[in-house]
Simulated assay, not measured.
Amino acid sequence: MNIVPFFDVEQIKRTGTFNMDSDHFHESYEIYYLLAGERYYYVNDRIYALQVGDLLFINKNQLHRTTSKGRSTHERILINFEDSFLEPLLGLGVGDLPLFQGESFLLRPDVHEQGRIVDILQDMLREQREAATGYTPYLQALLLQLLILIGRMREEATEPVLPESSEKQRRVYRIIEYLNAHYAERLTLEGIAEHFYISETYLCRIFKQTTGFTVIEYLNYVRIREAQTLLKETEDKITAIAEQTGFDSIAHFGRVFKQIAKRSPLQYRKQNKV
């Protein structure tokens, strides 16, 4: 349970193989900093190979998952926060800031920058753990300091850190693009495999190996993410939204929605209506 509303920071060290299997997109921002080891990170339809000192900024509602790269021990610090945590400090809409607009991104800080980042992160961990007087505004100030540093590093980077790009990964990227474009249709594994002139077995294997998701898992997340947008921004009936996002029945839609969003479509609409 977070001791500060809308903000959490944690440091975890894991030995051997570990593949993330928790919620894969959420309505908070995420900052992932790799202290030790190496990881594959799927985010925003691409795979990144993270090395020590890498920092990944994940925007709201971006599908993501981290998976093992070898069997080495890895250690990371993870921050999650919502707009409302910073708004009292900034006095404006956090989403209007340049850093929060556009896509998620990976930074590869130099040794000096890594030192500054780790200092801020350790201060955050200590403040959250000790919860001394005034720790909430202190955490807000530390987070703002970190975000300013990230923004400057991003501006000064000579070139972006590129995602992995083997032939297998490029094929999976094309499949992902197809799913993103056709999620509203009645897709089947057989039909997707035929479209790309590969077998169902090969489709399922390379997709899982590359992204950490099964094809159906990924398709469901894309559909539910779009359904959440429609629930928030339109007056469409839930049955119509289920049909618009590719579900063959309202019962199937409701079941998958609750599994991913942890609440029913109606509850989600009541809590998030714009």
Rank of each mutant, 00 (worst) to 15 (best):
S84D: 07
N59F: 00
T67E: 12
A240E: 15
I117Y: 00
Q128R: 06
I176V: 01
I198S: 12
Y32K: 12
I31Q: 04
R108S: 07
G115S: 10
I198D: 00
N220D: 02
G95H: 07
G95Q: 13
Q145K: 15
V172Q: 07
D96Y: 07
H182R: 13
T133R: 15
L146R: 04
Y41E: 14
Q140N: 09
M1C: 10
T239R: 07
P160T: 03
K13F: 00
E156A: 07
S28Y: 06
V43M: 02
V215W: 00
E177R: 10
G16I: 08
Y268S: 10
D119Y: 03
G102E: 05
E82S: 12
Y40D: 03
S249P: 01
S264T: 15
S84F: 02
N19R: 00
S84P: 03
E10P: 01
K270H: 08
A132S: 14
C204K: 14
R152A: 04
T158M: 07
P88R: 04
Q169Y: 02
D21M: 12
V94K: 03
R65F: 02
L139D: 13
R205A: 13
E38G: 05
R154D: 09
S165A: 15
S22Q: 07
K13H: 03
M153I: 11
R46E: 10
Q228M: 14
S165K: 12
M124F: 08
L147M: 10
R186K: 11
E30W: 11
K60Q: 01
Q271M: 09
L35H: 12
S84G: 10
R108H: 04
G95A: 05
I260P: 02
A181R: 09
E177K: 01
L142T: 09
S166V: 06
P109D: 09
E190A: 15
E75A: 11
L89S: 09
N59Q: 15
Q51C: 06
Q128K: 06
G191V: 11
I12N: 13
Q128M: 11
L189A: 12
Y138N: 12
H252Y: 04
F25V: 02
T211L: 06
D21G: 01
D8I: 07
Q271Y: 01
A242H: 01
Q209S: 15
E190H: 13
I77L: 13
R225T: 06
M20Q: 12
I238L: 14
Q209W: 06
L50F: 01
V172H: 13
M20A: 12
I47P: 00
D45I: 05
K237A: 15
L90T: 06
Q114R: 13
I150Q: 00
V222A: 03
E127F: 03
C204N: 09
L107P: 03
V274S: 06
N44G: 14
Y202D: 03
Y48P: 05
F57W: 06
P163W: 05
T239N: 13
H64G: 04
L106Q: 05
F85P: 02
C204P: 01
D83P: 00
Y183L: 04
G91P: 01
F213R: 08
E200N: 09
V118M: 11
E226H: 11
L63Q: 12
E30S: 03
M20E: 08
Y221M: 06
K258S: 02
